[in-house]
Design a protein around this nucleic acid. Structure first.
Length: 919
DNA sequence: GCAAGGTC
């Protein structure tokens, strides 16, 4: 029988082949991919003679992408990316590996998968399986389960093959699809919204700047911003403390006040004065005890990154590059591992033995192996095990190689010293604590003497501070040498260091050991954060603005909860308690709703950006193409979407995204001041969905008997919209400009709204034809700024104060069929919708109502927080001074203020406990 | 031009 064995990486293929063949009769040949060799030997599985071929892939064989027609950024509304078709395929650079697998699979009866024993490994197993089964559908597929590349483990696993686990692979499929859809939709949305709207001069090529969003990179940025805000909002507070020292023949001891400090000056002074009046100190306790300082757990990836950052100021990304080099050249074990415990079968003594010849730590290694020295101790167990790789440890001796950089040298030294420390006894110290009493107040002093340094002898990166303390005996009395009342101020926490950031990510489950450094690097690459020489991170203006924008929307998109929830769902899929499609559908529905909501609230992002950046007056580039909100699929080209857009002149239109190939367009009345897509679809227009638009018209530009708020459909069925287009026109500038003419001329199937524009309708201001109300020569010059509008009011015009806002109302004449010639007062303020018939003001009761004909829209004057600088944010949060006073409950049951669920928007809970998640 | 996850 011929058996094809496939490992996740070349090194594992080589190790498996070497172990199984016992290095006898092992033949090596090249495959189509230069990195993935093939190893051949004979072996017996459960008594059956097998010709074994072992080869490898390089991680994932396949990638997930949108189908071609959705890949261009302007090809569709980003909201469509939540259901646009995706495909899994082998990318160009992996085709060689695929061909090798196909060639070998054709000749084999069995396929044995030696992928890492985690979810990603299982998913890769199914990718390999798919490729092999396509060329040999009879191939029998098996999975080898192993937890380390050690002889017994590998031999046992091949004799106890199991079937691949579809559920594990499903969980990864779900993760991939969600990551892709969320990432691509939000990235396109925020990039196209913000890039050209502001002057982003920090990037050399700001036209090609990408403002990416990702479920790992954003929470990572969130940690940085949150700490920054904490520092910004810190208000130093003065405190008071009493310090005491005592000088004797043996030396000086410093005693610390056991109350530490008081913020109340009066209290501190009263206590201090009591001490001054009765300054005799009495020793109330002398305690001596042995203290141990334990060596670190065996080294895993995150710990390696953290320590290299702390000890050598190396970035996590650089650390992993250097570690990869050392691994490739055989000096250290596999550097991407979660495991921080050595299997009992690891030959720890053998690893130490290799280091005996080292000029610096060789003698320490000798002492370790000397049973008489008593220095050896079996390493501790950190409690993490990825079941695939051992902790990082040295695999080959080196006293320094010629090609090594200083960082190679340092990292190898760290790995070796860390390993030697792990198998060493803890340091032992003798600690003395002395407590004294002065006028009823307690003070303490401590000293430590190291009795045996043990592992600290080799682990030079750690120290154990301590100082000698003079001898004191219980009951002894003395007069302090100094007794002072000192003041200090509270300090903010420091900026996050790289080690802190890795810690936050690790605790919140953001990224994996192999990818965390990538997410950190991405923050720097995207200009979201900077790192100072002390490896501490600050957000850039861009990073802070983005987080602030989403925070102002009330969404937790920059917090780690979304990722944590996804992780829970992945776990549920992998153990079979939830189905793959169920999780996928529900999660994507929720994220799409969240996306649509975020887009409706995009003004928050714009406002936050405006706090930090100048507005740009660019009119070309993406701004022209800024994807608006989708109304429907274009019925003309039937490929792209029709989207609502606001043109530079302020007028609205609905145009096809396929422009200029498709020039389908619907022109809208020129009297619209606001328009926003809703999620309500029209019941009449087909093919659906056709989303209705919430319009707001300018009071002065439409007849009085029309409501200024109108929920309408632009696809021809809406009578009111049709009438208003007839009455108001679409704006003469639109009619006369070249692009507009092009749009109409090329599109024979123009809508009612378009055709109506050419009719001769009377202006509502002067009742003349030949111009629209927008361009009426008798019309009051109208600015978008209501302030300037007021100053331009023509003198002599009849006016009354507005009942609602007090702004003068102008007397107008209606020109509609039902009310032609009738006078009405209309408020000039754009923020106010008040108008009233003149005749109704004179009738005390009955007849026409004296009430304003239109109510103020609740949305017309949204309550806003005042302008806010960077520093105010944290302060607001600290004092709970947010817009809502609702109490929120986090997963741990702690009340948290000012947030709302990003799934359903309900402010009473967080998304992780949302009843609407339905999963 | 978007994500995150493998790995050379």
């Amino acid at each position: 029988m011929k058996v094809l064995n496939v490992a996740e990486k070349p090194s594992v293929a080589k190790a498996v082949a070497t172990i199984l063949s016992r290095n006898q009769g092992l033949r090596v040949r090249e495959g189509r991919s230069r990195y993935n060799k093939l190893f051949e030997f004979n072996y017996s599985i459960r008594g059956q003679h097998c010709q074994m071929v072992v080869t490898s892939v390089i991680g994932h064989l396949m990638e997930l992408e949108f189908e071609d027609r959705f890949r261009k950024w302007h090809s569709c509304d980003p909201a469509h990316l939540y259901h646009a078709p995706v495909r899994k395929f082998v990318p160009e650079d992996k085709l060689d590996i695929k061909r090798t697998l196909e060639e070998e699979a054709r000749k084999c009866q069995w396929l044995v998968l030696w992928l890492d024993c985690d979810r990603e490994g299982e998913n890769i197993a199914f990718e390999v399986l798919e490729v092999c089964a396509q060329v040999n559908r009879h191939i029998d597929v098996w999975r080898a389960r192993f937890s380390a590349l050690i002889d017994r483990e590998i031999h046992e696993s091949v004799q106890n093959l199991v079937r691949p686990n579809q559920l594990f692979a499903d969980a990864v499929d779900v993760r991939q699809e969600i990551d892709l859809r969320i990432g691509a939709s939000f990235t396109r949305f925020q990039t196209m919204l913000l890039r050209d709207a502001f002057v982003l001069d920090f990037a050399a090529d700001d036209r090609n700047l990408v403002l990416s969003y990702g479920p790992c990179q954003f929470p990572t940025l969130g940690f940085v911003v949150e700490r920054y805000w904490e520092i910004q909002s810190h208000e130093p507070e003065e405190f008071w403390t009493i310090n005491c020292s005592h000088k004797s023949d043996e030396g000086t001891s410093t005693f610390n006040w056991m109350r530490a400090h008081l913020f109340d000056y009066t209290c501190a002074v009263i206590i201090y004065e009591m001490c001054i009046q009765e300054p005799t100190a009495t020793v109330t306790k002398v305690r001596q005890q042995e203290k141990l300082k334990y060596p670190p757990h065996p080294l895993n990836t995150i710990e390696l990154e953290k320590r290299a950052s702390r000890y050598f100021h190396m970035s996590s990304e650089h650390t992993m590059k250097v570690a990869e080099d050392l691994y490739q050249t055989g000096f250290i074990s596999y550097p991407r591992t979660e495991t921080d415990y050595f299997s009992e079968r690891t030959d720890l003594h053998g690893i130490v033995q290799e280091q005996l010849g080292h000029p610096i730590w060789g003698s320490y290694a000798q002492r370790l192996l000397d049973p008489g020295a008593g220095l050896w101790r079996n390493p501790s167990n950190g409690g993490h095990d990825d079941k695939a790789h051992p902790p990082i440890h040295p695999t080959k001796f080196s006293a320094g190689e010629s090609g090594w950089s200083q960082d190679h040298q340092r990292l190898y030294e760290l790995v070796v010293r860390h390993f030697l420390a792990c198998v060493s006894q803890p340091a032992v110290g003798a600690e003395t604590i002395v407590e004294i009493d002065i006028a009823g107040e307690s003070f303490s002093s401590s000293g430590r003497v190291i009795i045996a340094k043990n592992y600290l002898d080799v682990y030079r990166f750690e120290s154990w501070g301590g100082s000698m303390i003079p001898t004191y005996v219980f009951g002894q009395q003395f007069i302090p040498t100094t007794l002072t009342l000192d003041s200090g101020v509270t300090r903010p926490p420091p900026l996050l260091s790289e080690a802190d950031l890795l810690n936050c990510m690790d605790k919140a489950g953001i990224g994996t050991d192999a990818t965390m450094h990538d997410h950190i690097k991405k923050l720097l690459d995207r200009f979201y954060a900077t790192k100072d020489s002390n490896t501490r991170f600050s957000p850039t203006n861009l990073g802070e603005a983005l987080v602030m924008g989403y925070d102002d929307m009330g969404y937790e998109l920059w917090k780690p909860y979304l990722r944590s929830m996804m992780e829970c769902d992945m776990k549920a899929v992998s153990i079979g308690t939830k189905r793959r499609n169920e999780v996928l559908t529900t999660c994507l529905e929720q994220m799409k709703a969240c996306f649509l909501d975020a887009r409706l609230n995009k003004v928050k992002l714009l406002e936050a950006m405006a706090l930090f950046f100048e507005r740009s007056n660019r009119s070309s580039g993406d701004e022209q193409h800024e994807v608006g909100d989708v109304v429907r699929q274009c019925t003309l080209c039937q490929e792209s979407d029709m989207v609502l857009r606001r043109k530079p002149d302020g007028n609205f239109m609905v145009g096809c995204l396929g422009y200029p190939q498709c020039r389908n367009v619907v022109w809208l009345p020129g009297s619209i001041s606001e328009a926003a897509i809703t999620t309500i679809s029209c019941n009449h227009c087909t093919p659906g969905p056709v989303y209705k638009i919430q319009f707001k018209f300018r009071r002065l530009e439409i007849p009085p008997n029309y409501n200024i708020d109108h929920l309408g459909c632009v696809c021809g069925c809406d009578e009111i919209l049709r009438q208003l287009t007839e009455i108001c026109g679409t704006g003469s500038r639109i009619c006369s400009t070249v692009p507009a003419a092009r749009g109409r001329g090329s599109n024979a199937s123009s809508t009612n709204a378009q055709r109506s524009n050419t009719r001769q309708t009377a202006c509502i201001h002067c009742s003349q034809t030949g111009h629209s109300s927008n361009d009426c020569p008798s019309r009051v010059p109208r600015s978008r700024n209501s302030q300037s509008h007021r100053t331009n009011m023509p003198s002599g015009e009849s006016s009354i104060p507005c009942n609602v806002c007090g702004t003068p109302c102008i007397l107008r004449t209606a020109n509609t069929e039902n009310n032609r010639g009738r006078k009405f007062y209309s408020c000039q303020s754009q923020e106010c919708n008040f108008f009233v018939w003149e005749d109704s003001l004179n009738s005390s009761s009955g007849g026409r109502s004296a009430q304003p004909a239109t109510a103020r829209s609740s949305a017309s004057n949204p309550s806003r927080r005042g302008g806010r600088g960077r520093g105010d944010r944290g302060r607001g949060r600290q004092s709970g001074a947010r817009t809502s006073d609702t109490t929120f409950v986090s997963a741990t049951g702690d009340p948290v203020s000012g947030r709302r669920c990003f799934v359903c928007g309900d402010p009473s809970h967080f998304a992780n406990v949302c009843p609407n998640r339905g999963m």
